[in-house]
Amino acid sequence: MSSDHEIYQIAAQLAAENKTPTVALIKARLSQSLPLARVIKGLQTWQNNPKIAETSKPEIKIQKNSNEKPFTLTDVELLIKQAIAPLQAEIELLKAKLSE
């Protein structure tokens, strides 16, 4: 998943939890540390288009040749986490809509 997509997903999750997405809240939930400027830009992009989390496609990189290092358990766990993040965000949005 691209880091921008992860930022959009986290912002959508926070909104679904009736929390105002902030840079600090997003940084706390990121799977990896990102530069502050990138988080700010991602949050601003999401604020201008909250549906971007639904429309942007996550990027999952798969090992393509034998010269690359083999997957570790942590790599597989990360790929799984990235794959289910959009589903979790959608569930949170649906829960928020149902509770309204």
Rank of each mutant, 00 (worst) to 15 (best):
M1R: 07
M1E: 07
M1Q: 05
S2A: 09
S2E: 10
S3Y: 06
S3E: 14
D4H: 07
H5S: 06
I7R: 00
Y8F: 14
Y8H: 10
Y8W: 09
Q9A: 15
Q9V: 13
I10Q: 05
I10F: 08
A11F: 06
A11H: 01
A12E: 02
Q13N: 10
Q13C: 11
L14I: 04
L14R: 02
L14C: 06
L14A: 04
L14T: 04
A15I: 04
E17C: 09
E17D: 13
E17Y: 05
N18D: 15
T20W: 01
T20C: 01
T22I: 05
T22E: 01
V23I: 10
A24S: 11
A24K: 11
L25H: 05
L25T: 06
I26L: 09
I26Q: 08
R29S: 06
L30F: 12
S31P: 06
S31N: 10
S31I: 09
S33D: 11
S33G: 04
S33V: 13
L34R: 02
L34W: 00
P35R: 02
P35H: 00
L36P: 00
R38Y: 06
R38M: 03
R38E: 11
R38K: 11
R38H: 08
V39H: 02
I40E: 03
K41L: 00
K41H: 00
K41W: 00
K41Y: 00
G42Y: 06
G42T: 02
L43K: 05
L43M: 10
T45L: 03
W46G: 01
W46D: 02
Q47V: 13
Q47G: 10
Q47T: 12
N48A: 12
P50K: 09
P50W: 03
K51W: 03
K51S: 12
K51N: 05
A53V: 00
A53T: 01
T55N: 10
T55S: 09
S56E: 07
P58I: 05
E59K: 15
I62P: 02
K64V: 05
K64M: 10
N65I: 07
N67C: 12
N67D: 14
N67P: 01
E68P: 01
E68S: 11
K69Q: 14
K69M: 12
K69L: 14
F71W: 15
F71E: 12
T72K: 06
L73N: 09
T74V: 11
T74I: 15
T74A: 14
V76E: 06
E77I: 07
L78D: 11
K81D: 13
K81M: 05
Q82A: 15
I84M: 01
A85D: 09
P86M: 01
P86G: 04
L87F: 08
A89Q: 15
E90P: 05
I91D: 04
E92D: 13
L94W: 13
L94M: 15
K95Q: 08
K95F: 07
K97R: 15
L98D: 14
L98F: 13
L98A: 15
S99M: 07
S99P: 00
E100V: 11
E100L: 10
E100G: 14
